[in-house]
Design a protein around this nucleic acid. Structure first.
Length: 566
RNA sequence: CGGGGUGUAGCGCAGUUUGGUCCAGCGCGCCUGCUUUGGGAGCAGGAGGCCGGAGGUUCGAAUCCUCUCACCCCGACCA
């Protein structure tokens, strides 16, 4: 395409609204324009990239046995009421009412809808099936940000699989796992699959695909010595040492006036904070939960929510304490605690003679012990894994952290939705059973942003060949009429085998160079001074900056060879 | 929603503290002409803004007051 026929509005300056590099570059390079908070128009150049990612995703899904379909974005409330998520999804769901006062939402995800469709699968003979679509999703994010990285309307590939047994689900899950790796690899990105929490979508087994980038919103904990990698939300570690072999003592009440924080109590008793057990009180619907963990560790609320099987947990606030006069803020402890579920971190099993709150203002117990002084209802991993701690899998590597962008997430759902929505098939014994399900998502539009986040320099975007909107950027730098005619011919010639953007604008060379680097096609073919002298073009590779002089007659062959090599 | 901040030409900004010197200004971009053409050219001329919106104070408001809307950043959420 001739530049003058295209619509590529490039900007010299960074837009004020953009914070991260990919957002700045997407606006500056003319891929994207903002319409409202978290809502964007994709301009022609941006759409070309989006379509390329979409096509890669489609090809890999098809190869993995997926069947494409298209469901509506507009969905009736009734469907969501049967699964209970019309309420559960909360403010994040975009809701609307039609002229007949019927409630609808713009789909934030499609488990409900796909499950209703899957009811057509009647027999175990129809299984397994994996259905997918590539479609706009709508989520009224609390805080949209970073351009299309976290927007309220975004392109997603979502797939759902239906199985008669766990082994079948495992096979599809693995096929998706490798399909996802291939998708991210084909986009030319370095990434890491990591263990993840199910969240609102739910499910026991789940993995996220993280594109590594400093600006990523997620933290990945990984082991440099083995393959272990997990989202910080779920990452485990081996950190507590064996029990000090000291005899159990009788607990003693100590006066700790005004000492409410871990540090203050530890200081006033002249002990280190790891000899103190803190008790955090949470409310989860009807229940009150007391979480016990060592004083020097941080509580991971995602783990706690997972153990309790709820979407999120909320710490007790002032008003909650007023409603429970037996709980004294700052002095809460497990000894004598009633009407609360006690969940303790595994590390407490090996702790002895520790300090806990006494449930009396200004007092703590010292030399308290599990069993002897209080019981524990649930043992669990409640704490954050920290860098430097030992890997939970190999046991020898020291964990490290890095940031990542979640571009894909796969889940084993089990019967969570099929049960509620009464989606069943008949097994070989003639008995009705709910489908065993999996679901698999890729953020297609986010993948575009993630690519730029990883592939750019201070001049602009560096597209990998697989996603570049054009293969070749042809620059005409001479005003000479004959050279112009030659350049037109080169454009025709290259266009026979490649998608070419031809900068035929009447602007200075500097502008053409700057725009070419900004919009980032992998290969620039420059026709300028040397053409007059030797009929040769200069080829510049965007990624490395390498330049080659190639004679007119050799252009096609040179480009073909080079592209095969790369 | 809580905390912080910003709305002035297509984009990036100054002016607001201390009302008048602003029927609003700068850089980039845009239009016309001439010159220029290998890393964001020069000269000359020109177009473009009811200063986010509504109301108020005042002889006079981009500037002060009230209300309102939008957007951005920090937190909980997630592809």
């Amino acid at each position: 395409m001739r530049f003058t026929d295209g619509f590529i509005p490039t900007l010299r300056e960074d837009p004020a609204e953009a914070e991260i590099i990919s957002h700045k570059l997407m606006v500056r390079a003319g891929l994207l324009r903002k319409v409202a908070a978290g809502v964007y128009s994709w301009l022609p150049l941006g759409l070309k990239v989006l379509r390329k990612v979409e096509q890669i995703v489609r090809e890999e899904m098809d190869r993995a046995g997926g069947l494409e379909l298209l469901m509506p974005a507009l969905q009736p409330a009734e469907l969501w009421e049967t699964s209970g998520r019309w309420q559960a999804y909360g403010d994040e769901m975009m809701r609307l009412t039609d002229r007949h006062e019927h409630s609808f939402c713009l789909g934030p995800t499609h488990e409900e809808l796909i499950t209703s469709i899957a009811k057509e699968l009647r027999s175990y003979k129809d299984l397994p099936k994996c259905l997918y679509q590539i479609q706009m999703k709508f989520r009224d994010e609390i805080r949209p940000r970073f351009g299309v990285m976290r927007s309220r309307e975004f392109l997603m590939k979502d797939a759902y699989s239906f199985h008669a047994d766990q082994a079948s689900l495992d096979r599809t899950y693995e096929a998706m796992q490798s399909a996802y790796s291939l998708i991210v690899e084909r986009c030319g990105l370095s990434f890491r699959p990591v263990k993840a929490a199910g969240g609102l979508i739910g499910g026991a087994v789940s993995e996220e695909f993280m594109v590594l980038a400093d600006t990523g919103e997620d933290v990945v904990v990984y082991c440099p010595d083995c393959s272990y990698a997990a989202n910080l939300d779920t990452a485990a570690s081996k950190w507590h040492t064996a029990a000090p072999d000291e005899p159990l003592k009788e607990r003693v009440k100590v006066h700790t006036p005004e000492k409410t924080s871990v540090e203050e109590v530890a200081d006033s008793l002249n002990i280190s904070s790891d000899r103190l057990v803190k008790t955090l009180i949470f409310k989860t619907g009807e229940k009150t939960v007391a979480a016990l963990l060592p004083g020097h560790k941080g509580l991971n609320p995602v783990k706690l929510a997972g153990i309790l099987g709820v979407g999120e947990v909320a710490l007790y606030e002032e008003d909650d304490f007023k409603a429970r006069p037996d709980l004294i803020s700052g002095f809460v402890g497990p000894v004598g605690l009633s009407d609360a579920v006690i969940i303790a971190d595994h590390s407490l099993k090996t702790m002895r003679n520790f300090v806990v709150g006494a449930n009396v203002k200004d007092y703590h117990w010292r030399d308290a012990n599990v069993d002897q002084d209080f019981g524990v209802d649930v043992w669990a991993d409640l704490v954050y894994a920290e860098p430097g701690e030992l890997c939970p899998e190999c046991g020898t590597g020291r964990l490290e952290q890095m940031r990542g962008i979640e571009v894909g997430h796969i889940f084993q759902l089990g019967v969570k939705y099929s049960d509620k929505l009464n989606a069943k098939y008949v097994d070989d014994g003639g008995i009705e059973r709910p489908f065993i399900m999996g679901c698999y998502g890729v953020g297609v539009s986010r993948l575009v942003a993630a690519t730029i986040e990883q592939k750019h320099d201070d001049r602009g975007i560096i597209w990998p060949a697989s996603l570049a909107p054009f293969d070749i950027h042809l620059l005409l730098l001479s005003k000479d009429e004959e050279v112009k005619i030659d350049a037109d011919n080169v454009y025709e010639e290259l266009s026979s085998g490649y998608d070419v953007i031809y900068d035929d604008r009447q602007v200075s060379a500097g502008i053409k160079f700057a725009d070419a680097d900004l919009i980032g096609m992998p290969m620039q073919v420059i026709i300028g001074k040397k053409w007059l002298e030797t009929k040769s073009a200069e080829i510049k590779l965007r990624a490395t900056g390498e330049r080659f002089e190639v004679e007119a007659g050799d252009l096609l062959k040179w480009i073909k060879d080079r592209r095969q090599r790369d």
